[in-house]
């Protein structure tokens, strides 16, 4: 049971990293990314290939981050001359291209057979029976670092500028913001984070094949971001834990309701997830947490204001 929980938490952690990336791209800057599964696969395969070539897990992670960052920057650049909706189509198309390349370029990816035996970080240094815990700890560390960095960025003038681009890019431009540069930066940074998630997925699974990167993954990440509260990172973490609890928790329905068979239950699970999301959007459309807004203290207290007024009256 404990190892089952550790497995689930590791998967939650990887989804959360993807969620942090989407929250930056879509939540803060309004750039829709329907190709998360594709970029994630790109990161995972890059990391796996570099790792299998014997370069080590650190180099593999950096390579995955770099490749995904560049791929995202290029996709963002291509779509810049088009209106916002086209980014959605473009990313969706990109995801499909990655899937087909992975499936068909067998010399590189072994197609549907997948890549086995991906070396893991610190393997051999840690006793094998404890490895899963250490790996979860590592993932926790990565999330913590990313979370702190992104929270800092969210509260910075950079965060403010990209929120402004999301609200109205024309206004942002007339106020002196280089919208093109901001958008490319944000999308590339999101790509770097997706690449890191991909690398950790490869290390965790030690075996990757195209079926692990289906489009439903993109939907899960969107659900986590929407449920948690768009543009809120803490909301996202709660959202991805909640989402995984529902997805995994509903597996146990068959122990309670033994009138359904396994196929019916897997359909019911998706219905329940959909229902949950609809209810959430009806009763709490802004998600669990609201987005950060800068607040300053009230200017001056009422008594002082009153005394100023009496002064002017007496003079």
């Amino acid at each position: 049971m404990v190892s089952y929980l550790v497995t689930i938490l590791s998967l939650v952690a990887i989804i959360s990293i993807l969620g942090l990336a989407l929250n930056l791209q879509w939540g803060l800057c309004g750039m829709v990314n329907f190709g998360i599964a594709g970029f994630f696969a790109l990161g995972a395969y890059t990391a796996a290939l570099v790792d299998l070539a014997g370069a080590g897990t650190l180099v593999a992670t950096v390579a995955a981050a770099a490749v995904c960052g560049i791929a995202c920057a290029l996709v963002a650049l291509v779509s810049l001359r088009l209106s916002d909706e086209y980014l959605a189509i473009l990313t969706l198309g990109f995801g499909e291209v990655v899937r087909l390349v992975v499936l068909n370029e067998e010399w590189l990816t072994h197609g549907s057979l997948g890549l086995p035996g991906i070396p893991r970080p610190f393997w051999g240094l840690i006793p094998e029976e404890q490895y899963e815990y250490w790996f979860l700890g590592m993932l926790g560390g990565v999330i913590l670092l990313l979370f702190l960095a992104l929270e800092k960025l969210l509260r910075s003038p950079f965060g403010r500028a990209i929120r402004a681009v999301r609200e109205d890019d024309v206004v942002a431009a007339t106020l002196g913001k280089d919208v093109v540069k901001l958008r490319v930066k944000v999308f590339a940074l999101g790509g770097v984070i997706i690449g890191i998630a991909g690398a950790f997925h490869s290390f965790y699974m030690t075996y990757i094949d195209p079926s692990q990167f289906s489009a439903i993954l993109t939907a899960y990440v969107f659900m986590a971001v929407i449920a948690g509260g768009r543009a809120s990172n803490s909301g996202l973490l709660l959202g991805s834990v909640g989402l995984m609890a529902v997805i995994e928790g509903t597996r146990f329905l068959k122990d309670i309701f033994n009138i359904f068979d396994a196929t019916q239950l897997s359909a019911i699970r998706l219905i329940l997830i959909g229902l949950g999301l609809i209810l959430l959007l009806i009763f709490r459309p802004q998600g669990c947490f609201a987005e950060y807004r800068l607040k300053i203290k009230k200017p001056e207290k009422e008594p002082r204001k009153a005394s100023v007024q009496t002064e002017t009256r007496t003079t």
Partner: peptide, 16 residues
Amino acid sequence: RELSELTVLENLLLAR
């Protein structure tokens, strides 16, 4: 064209 989800203050700070 106010940036509606930003606070009044943030609207101003953005322009700096």
